[in-house]
Design a protein around this nucleic acid. Structure first.
Lengths: 217, 217
DNA sequence: ACAAAACTAAGTATTTTTACTTAATTTAAG
DNA sequence: CTTAAATTAAGTAAAAATACTTAGTTTTGT
């Protein structure tokens, strides 16, 4: 039996998911939350097998929730739902430790497939995203071989530089980057400068294009 | 008995609405459509009392569907659903002849209230719509006709602004934009500034996110 | 334990962006 | 033809990015 908690601020979406799961004998929605903070409270109480969490919610967003779950509820799988097929969102979901990512427009079949895969310990990332993301990682996840790593890291970026690169490609400015990484703005500036130098680019446009060309993120 | 047709490209949302209406004895969902064109076809066949239609759909968007329904199916009430509490969308819905407008985040109570009101010949518009209507009609914006561009261009960007937006989203700086459009750098700067103001964003990151959210480019 | 690499954050300076306004000219709509 | 809207480009000023360097501290590798 798979016990599920739903976290989404739209009641229609929660109802839709419950309706979709109604005839699944081995899957049951045991509780719901309508914001991120409530989601964590509900998790604490009910200890489900799997959390389905919308990426955008009040109080805490889905990424923040998944980050907390990864730290404090290692037995709970997380499946992130999003309206948008956004590469940034996918990257953020993976970085936060999500076990899956799905678009709200997904079919019932795909939805169930994702649920089942994730509940049984696998990963499920929707459609076109999987191929892109599996070639990339930011914090040096040990799931890939060293050979693969050297192919995907031709510029020998450090761990911190990869983090900075990811945030810069999300168009975050130095102030925001500093806040998120809890470093000084001057530190963020220097990492950014070093990054541009390593990649031999002059501006953000060239940086973005090179990142895409070499599939750095 | 109120016969309803649902038009929304997300199965989850359709399922959610059906679940919400399951225990309403006098309301029944008789058919569904997943795009605008299909919605009109289904309407032709089933002649429901009320159409619930998402504002953004493939083939024909919700505004276009409502416009057609107002012309050709005068007995069918229309309730427009939207993710965004957007003044532009509300005005367009009204101008197209919609009987109601509701956010997808509305509560079950509000949803049922809207359905009942609209089905019985009344109007139901969510939130601060009265204020919005007063603001718009007093300022003489009431006479424009609904167009496809209005849904895809809720911010009323000019031709030049769209060009600038496209180039900015390609991360080109003002010097490059000026060269490509053969205008002064100062001109590019002002267009860019006006763009940020229209979209109510503070930086490139917010601009990019909003562009994706509203599918502006 | 030690050395190398990475990270951190300060310094000064130049360039670009953002902010906001004003106003002339061109284009589009009625 | 007239008016409104859009486009153009100038002004001043603050903030941020870029450029480059130096140097102390922390982390990692041998």
């Amino acid at each position: 039996m798979i016990n599920i908690v739903l976290a989404d601020d739209h009641e229609l979406v929660r109802d839709g998911i419950k309706a979709l799961l109604e005839d699944q004998k081995d899957i049951v929605v045991i509780d719901e939350a309508s914001n991120g903070k409530e989601a964590l409270e509900v998790l604490e109480r009910t200890k489900p097998d799997l959390l389905i969490v919308d990426i955008r919610m009040p109080e805490l967003n889905g990424i923040e929730v998944v980050t907390e779950v990864s730290k404090k509820h290692k037995n709970v799988k997380t499946l992130v739902l999003s309206m948008h097929d956004s590469e940034e969102y996918v990257v953020q979901a993976i970085q936060a430790g999500a076990d899956g990512y799905l678009l709200k427009g997904a079919s019932k079949d795909e939805f169930l497939k994702a649920l089942t895969k994730v509940a049984s310990g696998g990963k499920y990332f929707t459609g076109d995203v999987s191929a892109i993301i599996m070639n990339n990682f930011v914090n040096g996840n040990a799931t890939t071989t060293p050979k693969k790593e050297s192919v995907t890291d031709p510029f020998h970026l450090t761990k911190r530089e990869k983090q900075i690169l990811s945030l810069v490609l999300q168009l975050k400015n130095n102030k925001v980057i500093a806040e998120e990484l809890q470093i000084s703005k001057r530190t963020a500036e220097v990492h950014r400068f070093n990054l541009m130098k390593k990649l031999d680019v002059k501006n953000i446009m060239e940086l973005s294009n090179k990142a895409k060309e070499y599939q750095l993120i």
